[in-house]
């Protein structure tokens, strides 16, 4: 198989790839139904994958930036403290069936984690992860990939892009060497012939002009819109935790007799405690200030530093929000000037 080519992938062949991955002990994370809910969970076969779901609720960032990760362990105390690096624990992983929007987020995470000094744990996970995205055939009201530079069949961040074919099966675009190796598990595949017709991609109408956002956000810094919009915000961390690009973490030491370990844990700027000082002072005392930080970080501060927005328009935050906070709706109103 050649990078840059498109192949025909029958469901049976894809099942064979899943079987090969299971045989080799590769962790496969994919959207899976649990009762009414679709979460990103380990799967063993294609049959377990919720191919029809618009999005899984949880984020694929967990593959490269786990919710809890050990940074080091220690024994002794005081002058006699001994530090130990963690055992490398990056398991070979395939993230299967995420949407192209979410695949774009790995780049955004890498910009942060490898910004000044490379984050060896993150890099190890990323090196061991193969991303297989599934082109969209439907979109919902929360989707806004096209407002932030993506699209329902975008390839950035994917090693392999699958697109459903009319009449069943997939077109498989080999995008990287990792994607090539994964597809190679099925043996030789035939290139997709002219008879292979793709299922149409959904229309995702642009909701706002992202280029206008930095200016609009600068101008709105002291605006009452932040407090107004966030009256209904409950102040939980859901939006950041399901966000594929949010990368903030908290460092926690867990001490036991004679030693302990240092962990990094997901954190969220929506939580009151995120900026709480030891003195009791909180520079972001109100939920409006926290909402402003969340939006500004994604669309003003991050673009200033990295020339890209820290948002892929997946809409996971809005779907998961218990109070129906919507970045898309807010940014549309903000750029239209209200």
């Amino acid at each position: 198989m050649i990078i840059g080519e498109r192949y025909q992938l029958a469901p049976k062949t894809l099942e064979a790839i899943f079987a090969a991955l299971a045989r080799d002990g590769v962790r496969v994370l994919a959207p899976r139904r649990v009762d009414q809910h679709v979460a990103l969970l380990p799967v063993k076969s294609l049959a377990e994958v919720a191919l029809d779901a618009v999005q899984a609720s949880g984020s694929a960032k967990a593959a490269v930036f786990p919710p809890v990760e050990q940074l080091l362990s220690f024994t002794g105390s005081g002058q006699d403290l001994r530090l130990q690096d963690p055992e490398p624990t990056a398991p070979p992983t395939v993230v299967f069936g995420i949407r192209p929007c979410e695949a774009r987020a790995f780049k955004s995470l890498q910009l942060v984690f490898d910004w000044d000094s490379p984050d060896t744990l993150f890099d190890a996970h990323l090196a061991m992860t193969t991303v297989v995205s599934l082109g969209c055939t439907q979109a919902d009201e929360a989707c806004f990939c096209t407002s932030v530079g993506g699209g329902p069949r975008d390839t950035q961040g994917s090693d392999l892009l699958l697109q459903p074919l009319q009449g069943g099966g997939f077109a498989a675009d080999v995008l990287t060497a990792k994607g090539q190796a994964l597809l190679g598990l099925a043996g030789e595949l035939l290139p997709l012939g002219p008879e292979g017709m793709l299922e149409p991609a959904p229309e995702v109408e642009p909701a706002f002009d992202a280029a206008r956002l930095p200016e609009a956000l600068e101008a709105a810094f002291d605006s009452p819109v932040w407090g107004e919009e966030s009256l209904r915000c409950l102040g939980c961390g859901t939006c950041a935790f399901v966000c594929p690009t949010c990368s903030c973490f908290d460092i926690q030491d867990e001490k036991r007799d004679g030693g302990g370990r240092r962990l990094r844990c997901w954190d969220s700027c929506g939580l009151h405690q995120f900026t709480l000082h030891a003195s009791g002072h909180n520079p972001r005392e109100t939920q409006g200030q926290r909402w402003r930080q969340r939006v500004s970080h994604k669309f003003l501060y991050f673009p200033e530093r990295f020339s890209a927005a820290a948002c892929v328009g997946c809409g996971k935050c809005a779907r998961a929000c218990p109070a129906d906070m919507s970045l898309k709706e807010f940014l549309r109103a903000l750029t239209r000037g209200r």
Binding site: V34, A39, L41, G58, P67, L234, G235, C236, G237, T238, A240, F241, V242, C265, W266, S268, L271, P322, A323
Partner: peptide, 12 residues
């Protein structure tokens, strides 16, 4: 095992 400790339950 699916809990990510976002504290939405508590906040709501």
């Amino acid at each position: 095992s699916r809990c990510i400790k976002c504290y939405a339950c508590r906040a709501a």
